[in-house]
Computed example of a mutant assay.
Amino acid sequence: MQRHVQSCANAPRYAPRLATMALFFVAGATYATWGIHIPTLRDRFALSPAWLSVAMFAVALGAIVAMQPVGKLIARLGSDKVVGVSAWCFAATTALLMLMPSFWLTLLVLIGFGVANAAYDVAMNAQAATVEAGGDKPIMSTLHGLFSVGGMVGASVGGVIISLGVPPWLHFVGMGVLIAITGVLARPRLIADPASAAAGGQQKHAHAGRLLWVIGFLAFLGLVAEGAMYDWTAIYLRDVAKSVTLASFGYATFSGGMAIGRFSGDALRARMGMLKLLSTSGIVGVAGIVLALAWPNPWAALFGFLLMGLGCANLVPIFFVAASRLPDMHAGEAIAAVARLAYVGMLLGPVLIGFVAQHAGLRLALGLVAVSIAWIAIDGSRVLKRALQPA
């Protein structure tokens, strides 16, 4: 009887955690659904590579533009309320993606999809920070791991759906319905954010804003490296390590390291602390990329990419948690600012690597990844320690 009463008492405590897990999983599955249907969009409108790039950039543009106002909205209304509203917007734009009769209307929907995705993403991360702050153990890394699992499930199920000949519009409408149902079920179980301490004065808020830029720059470096690894590992294995057969395993190995790192990250952060985990992650990441670059053997490179995945896995979760704990700033607004800079890094990383590779070779270009992660390993802990101390 006593055990039953205790489990009932614990149920409300775990409800926000489970609801937030569902939000992250569905977000990953939705983004994967869009990813696997990019060729569908190309074929539907007979797009050239340049115009297809415009379509993909429309999503990124919507997300980048939306993040700052979304952060302010979360600070005013709370992440729980913004999750509820943004879930409906995300569902609607997802459902409409393959229903537009022209490419120009599709571009408008893609921008809206990017805006809604950004609002949903920032709000669920702010809610995650609130849930973690009210619990007894870290959860942020696991949630980001569930986003990755959602992506893998979404891509796998989507591949089956495509092979069965299901119309793309029906696939996207189904995803929209799933987003809406998840939002409706999760919203009552989310918790209100703690009151913002921003009333501490303009000078304190400015101090927090400066620290936020520094954390955002570290997140930018981390996502430059992550974006470069996602886009260039296969080419490195094929062109530098001279292995066509193993080229496709570069992405998989790096992603596997990311998954392992994220699902173990919360336990490691609870044991080691945020600062030590950040430094250790940076060291592991640097060791991985240096191994791959110094010894361009395909198996050595794959092991290096695995280490890079382990090293990169917890960078963004740590930066989001650190931003959410900045004094005199609302967690949602802080996470939005960091996410915006991180997203720019994810977009610019592959392009920057390609530009340098064109003029100096891919090995030297990927050396920029080593520099980015080394900067985080050397300077990250000092910056976060300063950020989390009261002004």
Rank of each mutant, 00 (worst) to 15 (best):
F57E: 00
R76C: 02
A60W: 00
G112L: 11
A92P: 05
D136V: 12
L99Q: 14
P69H: 14
V59N: 13
G154N: 06
I161K: 01
V153E: 00
L73M: 14
A133W: 02
M56S: 13
D121A: 12
G71M: 14
I111H: 04
L96V: 12
A95V: 11
Q68H: 13
P101C: 04
T93W: 03
F90V: 03
N117I: 06
Q127Y: 08
A129L: 07
M100N: 03
K72E: 05
L99I: 08
L96H: 10
A92R: 02
W88L: 15
L164M: 15
V70F: 06
M100K: 10
G165Y: 11
A95K: 08
T94G: 06
F57K: 06
I162R: 12
S141D: 00
T93F: 12
A155D: 01
V115K: 01
S163M: 13
A123L: 05
L105A: 15
M124W: 10
M67R: 14
D136L: 11
E132I: 04
L110Q: 03
G151D: 06
D136W: 03
H144G: 01
V149A: 11
A123H: 10
A116W: 05
R76H: 13
V65A: 15
L146A: 03
G154Y: 10
W88G: 06
H144E: 01
V85T: 13
G151E: 04
A128R: 06
F147G: 00
M98F: 02
S163L: 14
G159W: 09
T94P: 12
A91T: 05
E132C: 09
M124E: 07
V59I: 13
T106P: 04
